[in-house]
Design a protein around this nucleic acid. Structure first.
Length: 260
DNA sequence: CCTGCTACCTGATGGC
DNA sequence: TGCCATCAGGTAGCAG
């Protein structure tokens, strides 16, 4: 529906959404996006790590949803509610919205022009992500496993929830040093990461939760979450109490008995 | 190069 | 009830 259509007009309603991370020329960024996209055709839609790309005939639009951002579809040019950037297409309007205004919409000549995209590590859903590749990544760092999994320049796409979930499935303690993992253990973690992502995709597609509901992951993901957000509750494997620790300012959930 | 800290925003929640 | 502190799915920039 989006791939192949033309952007008749792009409207920037809330300029903060197009503000580049460095430099404060919001007005120029907004004008640039609007001008570049007038009449441009969307060739394809792609993902790189947590970035969504609209690949245009010339250049591309990179979106990052951070914590709260999302895309909404409207059948007309009316965008009900608080849309930050509106892309008016042939059959309706695609709206980028983010009540917290952490998310971004940027025009790029090439995706790699954005340092955050250029630096992305291996995609866990791609064929290059193998147990051997993961072992290489792990042995190259003494950081705690949880923090390494969150590092987008190592593995691109895992966030706080799925990192905790993957470590639980692999029975690995989030604070264990990454380079203290052997090949069989790396294989276990590799399988756990792939499994968690596959489960998450299933849970968000049949049936898809209502993503407009801020609590959507309760309807969609709750079925698959084994440890995230379960502090004090019994481990689903061994019934010990789930604990929470802070690592680099983020909460990690784990079972103190069966994760080591 | 690697690592850790803070800023960026808004809204929900819980303690007093 | 009201007020304030704390917390939330992420990442860039900077200092050490």
């Amino acid at each position: 529906m989006v791939a192949g259509s033309r952007i008749h007009r792009c409207r920037v309603i809330h300029r903060i959404a197009v503000r580049p991370s460095s430099g404060k020329r919001q007005a120029a960024a907004a004008a640039g996006l609007v001008n570049r996209l007038r009449g441009a055709r969307i060739r394809d839609v792609a993902r790189r790590g947590k970035y969504l790309l609209l690949e245009m005939d010339r250049g591309c639009v990179a979106m990052h949803f951070r914590l709260d951002g999302q895309l909404l579809w409207f059948d007309t040019r009316q965008t009900r509610g608080q849309v930050d950037v509106a892309f008016e297409l042939d059959k309706g309007t695609l709206g980028f919205t983010d009540r917290r205004h952490f998310g971004r919409v940027l025009w790029l000549r090439r995706p790699e022009d954005l340092p955050g995209i250029a630096a992305l590590g291996v995609d866990p859903l791609a064929s290059e992500f193998t147990a051997a590749r993961l072992l290489e990544i792990l042995t190259g760092s003494s950081r705690p496993l949880k923090q390494l999994l969150l590092d987008q320049t190592k593995v691109a796409g895992l966030g706080n929830i799925y990192s905790s979930e993957a470590l639980w499935r692999a029975k690995l303690h989030p604070e264990r040093a990454a380079n203290r993992v052997d090949a069989p253990t790396a294989r276990r973690l590799h399988a756990a990461i792939v499994r968690v992502l596959a489960r998450a995709l299933e849970c968000c597609s049949d049936p898809a939760p209502d993503f407009r509901d801020p609590e959507w992951w309760f309807q969609g993901l709750e079925k698959m979450l084994r440890v995230y957000g379960r502090e004090g509750k019994p481990c689903r494997r061994c019934s010990a109490h789930i604990r929470r620790v802070k690592q680099g300012g983020r909460s990690s959930f784990f079972c103190p008995r069966c994760q080591s």
